[in-house]
Nucleic acid binder design. Structure first.
Length: 154
DNA sequence: GCCAACGTTGGC
DNA sequence: GCCAACGTTGGC
């Protein structure tokens, strides 16, 4: 059992959007960064905890709790010629990019990035490191517990 | 819109 | 393999 933080632009897919989807599940496609892909393909397991993070918006921060709902599978958008996520070097035999299913569990209060930066127990979070841009980052059990408590505190 | 930081590409 | 140029991310 591991924990992750996954960034989504709420203009694209917000926590509300996922909760409105059938079974509260969406496919996490479109990742085009090798490190993030490797986390999905090599380390994520169904049931892993996910902090659903809203990025590139007025109020960046953790907006909900979710879980990994599938093993990794080839991201179909890499094969879509002319599509935004097309990768001409990817083939069905040798897919390059992976996706996983993510199930939203609950919307929480927004835990702003700025507040997270003030919490000493979170200072080692990959998200908070200088220059960190990864859309999927690991979260330690201690960081997860700290954040869940902060979310419940309201 | 700005810009720091990072990742990728491609010439050599 | 080096590295300059370019593109992207994402907070502010």
């Amino acid at each position: 059992m591991q924990y992750w933080l996954m960034k989504s632009e709420p203009d694209e897919v917000s926590i509300d959007d996922v909760l409105a989807a059938p079974k509260h599940i969406v496919s996490w496609f479109g990742v085009r960064n090798y490190q993030a892909r490797n986390f999905m393909r090599d380390a994520m397991r169904p049931g892993d905890g996910v902090l659903f993070y809203h990025s590139s918006c007025a109020q960046p921060g953790v907006a909900g709790l979710a879980e990994v709902a599938s093993a990794a599978y080839p991201d179909a958008t890499q094969f879509e010629a002319g599509g935004k996520y097309h990768d001409p070097k990817a083939t069905a035999e040798q897919p390059r990019w992976s996706a996983v299913d993510v199930r939203a569990l609950k919307k929480t209060r927004l835990l702003p990035l700025a507040e997270m930066r003030t919490i000493p127990a979170l200072e080692d979070m990959v998200l908070l490191q200088k220059g960190s841009r990864l859309s999927i980052t690991p979260v330690s059990a201690g960081q997860w517990n700290t954040i869940v408590k902060l979310l419940n505190k309201g």
